[in-house]
Design a protein around this nucleic acid. Structure first.
Lengths: 193, 193
DNA sequence: AAGTTCAGTGTACAAGTGTTGACTGAAAAT
DNA sequence: ATTTTCAGTCAACACTTGTACACTGAACTT
């Protein structure tokens, strides 16, 4: 799995990586691959599981003591950016397989993201933010947040210039989008439909 | 190019399609491929151009006479859904190559979407909607709208059940997200930062 | 101490891969 | 009328691909 992630980091996409390549970079003969997975797809599914673990870990890391909403958002985004860059290859995998890859893989990733959104919603529900929003609407908002962040991740991973000011600019752009969604969510609760 | 799109529609992803496969489904010997493209990547870039054309066509088709904003949104989303299903393979290509695919391809798609967002912004600017928003903020809003729609497209293309009620449910979900963004944009203009 | 599981090795095969060079015939340009 | 361009063909190359089978040695069970 590590070998596969390494290849992914080198610019290949999971669909274009061969079983033999994985075996070779793992320093192992091709037939040995079958001792662990019956298929490249199965390897992918295991990577998706690993990604799920990471997301849960991220969730715990991002939970902050009570802060003003604006500051909380800023801080969460920064934590996220750090986390992505620290697990670059896993997130490359996530972004790629969300759209390319076999249907089973796409579904696995989609489910992880859905779960993440759900967790986020249940976290928000236990705060005083967004009082009186319907459960369904809150889910919509959280889905929107998650897809927005996922989209930003694509750009983040493509960002070659890692200088602090470029990074902060990027961070601010994400925060801006999230703030906009947040404002919308607040306005939403004060509207009949 | 048609052959490549057909293969894409059959569940393959552009990165996993071979030159020979394309040639074969085009009913042509592999070497003939080189008469048209030097590379699979070049074929991809041409597909991206074609996609650009389609998006412009869509833009024209979606421009409606003055309507209440809510109704306009509903109608635009429906037009979009029809359009995507009518050009299924092109949009599959778009969704896949936005994240997977070579850097050059990713960039090409990204630019098409960026351009689309820009056009959208300039359209909105000529209406009475969102009065007094800064140019930069409007761009952010439109980017958010475009990425949200692009994300929805992934799900739309995976939607196997094409019954009218499922479709309408999907349409409503998208409209809901866009409305939320729209509300946020309105609230945004009445805020200092 | 003997047996079983486990992760690895080597060899082999049939297909499929990108790319090459030399050729053909029709259409377009001169 | 002759030349040039163009889209196609065929045969061949060196290489990579997934997968099968038989084997080996260490670790763990019993």
């Amino acid at each position: 799995m590590e070998a596969a992630l390494d290849l992914l980091g080198k610019g290949e996409s999971l669909t274009s990586i061969s079983l033999r390549e994985v075996a070779k970079t793992a320093g192992v003969v091709p037939t040995s691959f079958y001792r662990h997975f019956s298929d490249m797809e199965e390897l992918g599914l295991n990577l998706a599981d690993e990604l799920g673990m990471l997301l849960r870990k991220l969730m715990r890391a991002a939970r902050q003591p009570d802060l003003p909403p604006k500051e909380l958002m800023r801080q969460s985004v920064d934590v996220y950016i750090d986390f992505v860059l620290q697990h670059r290859n896993h997130f490359t995998f996530m972004c790629q397989c969300r759209t390319a890859g076999t249907p089973a893989l796409r579904n696995a990733i989609r489910n992880e993201l859905r779960f993440f959104a759900h967790e986020l919603a249940s976290d928000v529900r236990q705060t005083t933010l967004l009082p009186g929003i319907s459960s369904q609407d809150l889910d919509t908002v959280c889905q929107l947040i998650v897809t927005t962040v996922a989209d930003a991740t694509i750009d983040l991973l493509d960002l070659t210039d890692q200088s602090p000011n470029v990074r902060q600019e990027f961070s601010l752009a994400v925060v801006k989008k999230l703030s906009l969604i947040w404002l919308g969510a607040n306005a939403w609760t004060h509207v009949s439909d």
